[in-house]
Design a binder for these strands. Structure first.
Lengths: 144, 144
DNA sequence: CTGCCTGCAAAACTTTTGCAATGCG
DNA sequence: CGCATTGCAAAAGTTTTGCAGGCAG
């Protein structure tokens, strides 16, 4: 089952970095893996709280960073003043259309983007870690 | 002269939208046009203040939004918790490499990106307003 | 003159930090 | 047991907002 593999991956990552394996970290992982779509830190906090979890905001932020670092979730900064996250486990590269009307985030896959990236980085002698292509505009529903 | 054309463009934009033409807006425009590279809102505020300008933070934010809307500056959200701006006037499309080591922002031009964008938007029936391709990684200096 | 725009200060919001308590290794 | 991690609350930092006064049209 996917969720178990994610758990395994986190545990391995923690151990190999001499970080402690705590139940809080798995609670955050679970909430993140169960979330369908893009979520904010405070959203996870609310969800966990509603499930009577005692995980604090500080731990959420701490753990989200860990999860980003071990590749289990992506972190995005779109147009506004907060970070959005999404499950990365088992997903391949994709990018986003962001609707300025309704705020919807639409994903797309376009393999050529990675080719371009390699090309650019080679030219600039730049070692890429990750990248994002964001297109802002209006989705089908929001065009007048 | 370029600066006069930018001024003209702003004035026209303001009038056509029934916004008022104020000296504060031109002070912000000037500071933005004189800035070489990427700047933050508070940086402009400091610069203006050091020049004995009385423009307030509120007006800076207000005006930066106006300038973005009339195409005189670009607004970017990179990895961190603030907005960065840069002159757009007289510049063509370019994208950014952001160094995770030293924070440098390196620009690059890659015309094919716009072709891809058109392709994607057509497929998704999405009307693009603007877009950004950001590559995070390590620049020449910051590779070990 | 009308009401948009400004400056100031406070508020709002996300994220980070300090500290004592907890519990992993 | 030692110390990384946690919860809580406060702090930090950017951006927004409310309000009284000022100035563009």
């Amino acid at each position: 089952m996917n969720k178990d593999k994610a758990k395994e991956q986190l545990e391995e990552y923690l151990k190999s970095h001499n970080y402690r394996v705590t139940k809080e970290r798995f609670e955050v992982l679970n909430a993140a893996m169960n979330y369908n779509g893009h979520f904010e830190a405070d959203e996870l906090f609310a969800i966990l709280k509603s499930k009577k979890s005692k995980v604090s905001r500080a731990t959420i932020y701490n753990t989200l960073e860990v999860l980003v670092n071990c590749g289990l979730i992506f972190k995005h900064r779109f147009n506004d003043n907060l970070s959005r996250y999404e499950k990365a486990f088992g997903r391949s590269r994709h990018d986003h259309l962001i609707c300025l009307g309704c705020g919807d985030i639409i994903e797309f896959v376009f393999p050529q983007i990675e080719v371009i990236q390699k090309d650019i980085c080679k030219k600039q002698n730049f070692v890429p870690q990750n990248s994002t292509f964001q297109i802002f505009g209006y989705c089908k529903k929001c065009q007048k």
